[in-house]
Nucleic acid binder design. Structure first.
Length: 158
DNA sequence: GCCAACGTTGGC
DNA sequence: GCCAACGTTGGC
């Protein structure tokens, strides 16, 4: 299967690109939306490229790049009573929620703001630029990925 | 902090 | 199966 491209959201107060840079790799627990889970569980492969999106930030936008380091496996936090991500419906022998592992790739010098994504030609179809889109794990096209990477790596003149 | 938009739940 | 109520997301 060819490499795929994704956008994954997280609030920096919970986990930021700086945290990922420090950790090198992290598990992406806590996704509790079926559509987002399905993308992770069914479609993500090791080596897929990820736009790391900071939501509820100032400004919100893509703060860096990551890569899928491990395909989906059960989100065991759903089994831990009292945990923030506990869900009694999920059981070890019948998990509902899954997570993947992400590895750090790059931190943009400056976040590519949502406002820029919204006004950049070629990104009109991205879910994140559309009003009311709350999906925290979204597929993006290679063309969209490349445009955002270009925006995140200013050439410094020329 | 506000609130619109969305996904989920549950009564019927 | 419908849909109102609710909780959450996330831009502003």
């Amino acid at each position: 299967m060819p490499k795929r491209y994704w956008l994954m959201k997280c609030e920096p107060s919970a986990y930021s690109i700086d945290d990922l840079a420090r950790d090198g790799e992290t598990c992406w627990e806590g996704v509790r939306n079926f559509q987002a889970r399905n993308f992770m569980r069914n479609d993500m492969r090791v080596g897929d490229e990820v736009l790391f999106y900071a939501s509820n930030a100032a400004p919100p936008g893509v703060s860096g790049l990551a890569r899928i380091a491990r395909t989906a496996y059960p989100d065991h936090f759903a089994w831990e009573a009292g945990h923030k991500y506990f869900d009694a419906r999920s059981k070890p022998d019948a998990p509902i929620w899954y997570m993947v592992d992400l590895e750090f790739v790059e931190r943009f010098a400056e976040t590519v703001p949502l406002s820029v994504l919204k006004t950049t030609q070629g990104l009109e179809a991205m879910k994140v630029t559309q009003k009311g889109s709350r999906l925290s794990v979204q597929p993006v096209t290679r063309a969209e990925y490349d445009i955002v990477v270009r925006l995140g790596r200013p050439t410094g003149g020329g």
